[in-house]
Design a protein around this nucleic acid. Structure first.
Lengths: 223, 223
DNA sequence: CTCCTTGTTGAACAAGTGTACAGTAAGATC
DNA sequence: GATCTTACTGTACACTTGTTCAACAAGGAG
């Protein structure tokens, strides 16, 4: 038995109600403000990346994860690539948010290190997402644009803290260069931890951070 | 006008020869020893990864790059994933090959650092390949198996050099832990250099390596 | 030359890809 | 209640995906 699609003024729900001879009251779907739904799709995209890498970042997967229909990504983002760019921006948003306390009135080098080791950042799922995204940067102009903007923003935050610490110690250093090296180390530690958790503990990563910065700034008192 | 396919004992080449009324002497394709063709497919796979990341690692792309037909990957590797695993193993082969001189009778910490900066290793194309592969490790059992084996092999080579250097200096260190940190740093530097070449020069990367190892081993004479 | 092995081709297949779009309906506003 | 905006659905589309497989042919062995 098949039902004909709704025609004219009678909704499918009305027809169905009649056919099964009882009212169907529950709405078939929920409407969200555009921003809310966009955020939901971004979240679903992140989940897909964490679960299966860039290969699993498909319209079908994402919409299923978000419990929405296939058309929604196009409606809210225009294209899948635009959603991917939004996903990447979200990752940087969160990274920078964790750094925010560090960037406060009193820059604190220990807080910088500990922020990098925070569970929101230093965890395999999060890393899998970074990894999937990094692998796409070279092949995706939209992603590259986001990267260029956000990376510089992030680097400058780190450089500021390092420069402040160096000034407080009366040391002359190239804070920008050290910031890049620090980020490189951070990325590398995330990488090892993300690929094989057992290979590199948080404690080992912490030691690397301190050793690296002490080489440039002198002894740092650990908390 | 269309030609019927070859039937019975007459080859398509014979029929074509007759049709255009002149001999066709050039073979339609070349046969290679299995190993040779496998190597060609691996090379083509590497090229695809460098050009377009894991998304470009498709049967069509690879076979086109290798100037072969679609069926060849299945014939030589069984599946696309098996080829990917072989590609990954090849990357480690080459990395370990560059390290080989380091691992010789007289382990040399400077040679270790310089090997990591060698143009065969420290270049954006090579990094794009690593990046694409790393992003897949978590989602691909075959790849994970290769990683587990080769990474340990590689780490032990690095640890050996560090341990020897530490012994020569009479220092007590955890060479394995330092090796992991060293590899993490190395990966991170490759990453920055590969994503945006202008962000991190070879010279800056060199400085990071020396600072990192000097923190553990004391002053190192630079070449 | 005539086998014979096996590397190679290319079409066929089902399943999955992103996008377009016409139509549906939720829920705020009046 | 009626009206309207727009979030949302779901199908259709053209195309790409990896794998299978029967047939072809290169090139060495005899």
């Amino acid at each position: 038995m098949s039902y004909s699609p709704a025609i004219g003024t009678r909704s499918l729900r009305e027809i169905m109600s009649e056919a099964i001879d009882q009212p169907i009251s529950a709405p078939r779907f929920r409407r969200y403000p555009s921003e809310t739904r966009a955020a939901m799709l971004i979240e679903a995209g992140l989940t897909c990346l964490a679960k299966g890498g860039i290969t699993a970042f498909t319209v079908d997967n994402i919409c299923q994860e978000a419990k929405a229909s296939r058309g929604l990504i196009a409606h809210h983002f225009g294209s899948k690539d635009a959603l991917l760019a939004a996903v990447y921006a979200t990752m940087y948003d969160r990274l920078i948010a964790v750094m925010a306390p560090v960037d406060a009135a009193a820059p604190d080098i220990v807080a910088l290190i500990e922020a990098n080791l925070a569970p929101e950042i230093f965890n395999p799922d999060s890393l899998k997402i970074w990894l999937a995204l990094w692998g796409e940067i070279a092949n995706n102009a939209e992603l590259r644009a986001v990267h260029r903007q956000r990376y510089v923003e992030f680097r400058d935050t780190v450089a500021k803290v390092i420069a402040a610490e160096a000034a407080a110690r009366g040391r002359q250093v190239d804070a920008g260069a050290i910031a890049v090296a620090f980020i490189a180390l951070s990325d590398g530690l995330w990488l090892e931890h993300g690929i094989d958790e057992s290979m590199l503990s948080r404690e080992a990563a912490r030691a690397s951070f301190y050793a690296m910065l002490e080489a440039h700034l002198g002894p740092i008192a650990r908390p």
